[in-house]
Amino acid sequence: MKIIVLMENSAQEGLICEHGLSFYLEYRGGRYLLDAGECGAVLYNASKLGVDLSQVDKAVLSHGHYDHADGFSAFFRVNSAAPVYARPRITDPEIWAEKEYIGINMGMFCRHEKRFDLAEGPRDLADGLHLIPDRVKHEQSLVAETAEGLVVFNSCCHAGVVDILAQLKERFSGQPIRAVLGGFHLMGKGGTSTLGPAPEKVRAMAAALRDDLKVKDIYTGHCTGAPAYALLQEELGDRLHHLTAGAVYEFAD
């Protein structure tokens, strides 16, 4: 299994960064895109990284926020066939009631509605590759079974990374969690330079990932935020890796 980070809040030299997230996956002969960032710059990074998005077989939208969804408008310009698998409530206005609207661009969605495959999970994209909904009504995890254990993607973990992984470990009984990749939504209201929860809660989360769930490697960034990442680093040491556009990770299928 090969993973290339196409978009993230930070980027390797020569690539574009934005407040968004996008992963390209090659898994057991299939090519997949998870999220597409916020503005279409994913096309530039993909080209620089040698990723041909026209050859993607299936795409996934992790949840209905603009910084993961709106880049699909650009993706559709270069890929005319791949369906985008998402939960049906990604466009539900009840989700955004009395909040600042940070949802999917509805103009984009209406123009390309036929490209979205909206159904409630769990669903299998391929043998060993699963979409599992969580308790946030528009969010889902992408879970890959590998020879090393489960590799889990949950782009923002609004339901809480520990709860998400605990439920997945119960569902996939007997399989260890090899890695988790995504943002942990620990930033404060002031953005990625601020801390949302109390420091002790971040440390407790790190301890649960390390000691209870025994996750071998944790790859995070995006909405985790710099202060929370620093706290996680203190607790997790070399288990923790910072996501950045251009990074490549591989796991044995």
Score class of each variant (00 low, 15 high):
V42D: 08
Q167K: 13
R28A: 08
D238P: 06
R77T: 11
N79P: 06
G30N: 04
Q140P: 00
G237F: 04
H65R: 15
E38I: 05
L33S: 12
A159C: 10
L150R: 04
V42A: 12
G183Q: 02
Q233L: 12
R171K: 02
Y32W: 02
L15K: 05
C156T: 14
G190C: 06
S10Y: 12
S54K: 13
Y219S: 04
G29F: 02
E148L: 09
M7F: 09
G29V: 05
D211C: 02
T192Y: 13
V5F: 00
K201H: 11
V78G: 05
L181Y: 03
L232I: 00
G191Q: 11
E38L: 10
A159Y: 05
H138Q: 13
I164K: 03
D52R: 14
R178E: 05
S47G: 14
S62H: 03
A69Y: 00
D212R: 15
G225H: 00
G40D: 05
K189A: 13
A86W: 07
L168V: 03
P133L: 11
A74V: 01
D253L: 09
H185C: 15
M205P: 02
G188C: 14
A228N: 00
N105W: 07
P176G: 09
M205A: 01
K214H: 07
S22E: 00
A166S: 14
Y27S: 06
A144N: 04
C110D: 15
I164M: 07
G40V: 04
G121F: 10
D70R: 02
G103C: 04
S193M: 15
C110E: 15
C156K: 12
H185M: 13
I3A: 12
S47M: 14
V143D: 04
G190D: 09
C156Q: 13
T220L: 01
H112P: 06
P133Y: 14
L240R: 01
S62I: 01
V152K: 03
G29M: 07
H65K: 15
Y249M: 13
Q12Y: 12
L6K: 09
G225N: 00
E38P: 08
I102M: 13
I3D: 14
E94L: 06
R178Y: 07
S73L: 10
A208Y: 08
G174A: 08
L236P: 09
H222P: 02
D238V: 10
A69M: 01
E13C: 09
Y249N: 12
A59F: 03
Y249I: 08
F72M: 06
L168N: 00
I164N: 05
R203V: 08
C223R: 11
Y249T: 07
R239T: 00
D67W: 14
E94W: 07
G71W: 01
T192M: 15
L209V: 05
A207Q: 14
H158I: 00
V152A: 04
A230K: 08
A208R: 12
M187W: 09
A228M: 01
R28S: 08
P122Y: 11
H63N: 11
G160L: 08
L34S: 00
